[in-house]
Amino acid sequence: MRWIYRYPVLIEELCIGCQNCVKQCRYEALRFVDGKPQIDESKCLGCFKCAMNCPKLALLPTFFDEPKQIVFDYSDVDPEAIKALCAKADLDPERAMCMCTMTPAKEVAAALIKGARTLYDIMIMTGVKTDCGIYCSASLDRLLKAFFGDEYKCPNNEKWGYPTDPCVKNVSKEVAAKYPEYFIEDDQKHWKNLELPTICELF
């Protein structure tokens, strides 16, 4: 579940019309009209990538009268199918994969089974990756690959992500032996049993 309390409001006199904000928006909530960004607050998911990329701090966080919520109902999705997809992605269905929204892996798996086809679809349906936008990326990538197999194509750009998937389970014996100080082989055993704590548990 994602709660959204705030959206950006433009302070017109500060805006220099650079369009950085429009380029950063993932949700088509910003359009460039008459030399200034126009904000559609109904589409805004409060990630504030626009504001953080504004060189003039011209986008002011403002509270909605009532917070918005993204709640995804997946009660109609076969739990066994969810379990199988999570297993393929080496994820525990019950554990959070997003440290902002605490969305469990099973919810994202269900979104894919229920028709999500892109990262954007998953974000809109579940709210995952719509806050900090950083730390759930690798688990999302694993789920997308598990679902689409060889057909999965990473967007390969700075906005939606580059193709990178190093993982402890794939580190070779030679590399593990070369860097014993990182306990690779030991962690590979824990990985297999889904025992390794992630940032969602350690933060």
Binding site: M97, G133, I134, Y135, C136, S137, A138, S139, D141, R142, E158, G161, Y162, T164, D165, P166, C167, V168, V171, V175, Y179, E181, Y182, F183, I184, D186, D187, Q188, H190, W191, L196, P197, T198, I199, L202
Partner: peptide, 23 residues
């Protein structure tokens, strides 16, 4: 590093093995 790498440091490795990434 980029966001993907920060994420895999935290999600594709354990707290000990992850330190091979920055190294």
């Amino acid at each position: 590093a980029r966001i993907e790498v920060r994420s895999l440091y935290h999600l594709n490795f354990g707290p000990r093995s992850a330190n091979i990434v920055p190294r």
